[in-house]
């Protein structure tokens, strides 16, 4: 197995903020919009350097999505910033009609996704956003795993025409991918090759999957760990190649089981290569207040849960 070192924990939203400034410097058409969460979204640096290209819309997310769609009519590349809940569920029809159906070049950037938002509780901990966004035709859906990858993804989407949903989070989290990584939309990242079970993870749970890989290795089990940072379009080729090799599957994500990465992979496998599969995800339940690590434990999204799922999937082969 390949070992990964935490280069120093950082929040993925800060990766977004740093890259937004960088992409602003690279491309004069990039503009940013925020709905009264500039600090939380780490958009201050962009706002400070490009005040004429930063639009503070106030607490009015529906209007923000419409304005972003309108800005593309004029050649702008708008990056909208607010929490994942307010970036998706609150404004679903605005995104559906004015951005996805109209195929506008809007980058919907969403922080504080999932349980690891922590103490604010279920009102803010959206666990349905990947599902909502992936169902929309024309929409690309990306959920990077750490600071460096979020930064790389934020840069990459500027050059990808069409609507994008970019999801990241609030807490400091192990940062382990290369700062120089090329980010290829739609291309899953092989992190550690193995032969006994394929573990496909996305977002924060990629690091958790790597820890599970170590535990499994100690038991003589060689798990393959693949970072599926792009939920849509799904890297079917990489996923099928791995499952054909290992014969069983675990998916891990900080999302509802319905509509998440596991749901996409289950559909792919059912159609093309059925295999025993276990899903590590929240199962039809709202979150609650608590510390991120405690919430991940309580909702079954921790290292032992991935290990148990791998053993169960293998036992079913």
């Amino acid at each position: 197995m390949t070992e990964y070192k935490n280069l120093g924990s950082k929040d993925t939203r800060s990766g977004f903020g740093e890259a937004l400034l960088e992409v602003g410097r690279q491309n004069p058409n990039v503009v940013a919009l925020c709905a009264d969460l500039t600090g939380s979204m780490k958009m201050d640096a962009f706002a400070h350097e490009f005040p004429a290209r930063f639009i503070q819309v106030g607490i009015a997310e529906a209007n923000m999505m419409g304005i972003a769609a309108g800005l593309t009519i004029g050649g702008k590349i708008p990056y909208t910033g607010t929490f994942a809940n307010f970036s998706t569920g609150r404004v679903y029809d605005q995104i559906r009609q004015s951005i996805a159906y109209a195929n506008k070049n809007v980058k919907i950037c969403a922080s504080h996704a999932g349980l690891t938002l922590g103490e604010d509780g279920a009102t803010h901990q959206i666990l349905e956003d990947l599902g909502l966004m992936k169902m929309l035709p024309n929409m690309t859906v990306i959920n990077p795993c750490d600071f460096n990858q979020t930064k790389a993804a934020t840069l990459a989407i500027a050059n990808h025409p069409g609507p994008v949903y970019l999801r990241f989070g609030r807490p400091k989290w192990p940062n382990f991918t290369s700062p120089e990584q090329p980010f290829i939309i739609g291309k899953a990242l092989m992190l550690s090759e193995g032969s006994d079970v394929s573990i496909f993870a996305t977002g924060h749970l990629v690091w958790t999957a790597l820890q599970a890989c170590k535990v499994l290795e100690e038991q003589g089990i060689h798990a393959e760990i693949i970072d599926v940072h792009t939920i849509k379009p799904l890297d079917e080729e990489a996923i099928l190649a791995s499952v054909i090799k290992t014969g069983c599957v675990v998916t891990a994500e900080e999302h509802m089981r319905n509509g998440g990465l596991g749901d996409s992979i289950a559909q792919l496998l059912a159609l093309k290569h059925p295999a025993p599969m276990e899903m590590v995800a929240v199962n039809d339940h709202f979150g609650e207040s608590g510390k991120p690590e405690d919430l991940l434990k309580k909702f079954g999204l921790d290292v032992p849960d991935i290990v148990a799922a791998a053993l169960k999937a293998m036992a079913r082969t």
Binding site: G66, A69, G70, T72, P78, S98
Partner: peptide, 23 residues
């Protein structure tokens, strides 16, 4: 722009207006 689901056009028009100013 697509429209039909009501209430969205004014926001879109505002975005297009801002883009004109920027350009």
């Amino acid at each position: 722009m697509s429209s039909g689901s009501l209430g969205q056009g004014l926001s879109v028009a505002i975005g297009a207006s801002i883009a004109k100013k920027m350009n």
